[in-house]
Nucleic acid binder design. Sequence first.
DNA 1: TGTTTAGTTAGGCACATGGCTAAGCTTGAT
DNA 2: ATCAAGCTTAGCCATGTGCCTAACTAAACA
Lengths: 113, 113
Amino acid sequence: MAKLDARLDLHFAALGDPTRRAILSRLARGPASVSELAAPHDMALPSFMGHLKKLEDAGLITTVKEGRVRHCQLAPDAFAPVQDWLGEQRALWNGRLDRFDDYVANLMKDRNR
Amino acid sequence: MAKLDARLDLHFAALGDPTRRAILSRLARGPASVSELAAPHDMALPSFMGHLKKLEDAGLITTVKEGRVRHCQLAPDAFAPVQDWLGEQRALWNGRLDRFDDYVANLMKDRNR
DNA sequence: TGTTTAGTTAGGCACATGGCTAAGCTTGAT
DNA sequence: ATCAAGCTTAGCCATGTGCCTAACTAAACA
């Protein structure tokens, strides 16, 4: 669980920045080089690379260097951990509702006695 | 778009911390007071309150003070913005957006420059 | 009325984050 | 052999984050 936690930390932290979400949206349309990705963002290249590094550290994208160009693409199943966590929360919430139903059911039973 | 962006920033940033995710998991089981929530976390109360504040600022939880006790609960549809964003990404990935949507997205990108 | 309980406010410290410039290093083109 | 393109490294700065302690306020209780 602790390992998963650390991964989720990186995932959510990476997603908590509009520049990085924009990069992901761009990559969802297809792979691109660093400078292609950087072009629409009014930011010095080293700053931009910092964002790419966080996305890669989080496992959201993968990059390969070919010659002097680095190609980037979305990682397969990039959002699976986030989806899974949301699913868990949903399950907890539903469990709560189930218990609430039980509670109400019991109340009714008691009342009818 | 800019407003949604800011909201997503807060959401994801709030989720990017294990303490705060634990709070949400606890609240998914039902409402609780501040000290009930804080009990399992080995942390000074002011530090813990900082986490609660971020969750509330992000709109993930709501709190009400009754007497000297502050009651906390999950906000209704707390995760909707995150779910929506993930849905969008999925749609992009699946290439489900038609040309008009693409056209609008590009327009907006240009406008924001 | 005095004490305990439950938060809150104030302030401080260490480290992370997000931005910059300047300089360096491969690779591809001329 | 030289120059340009495409990163990459190094180092700096301002601000934000996450934690702490100490002192405070406002209920609830005895």
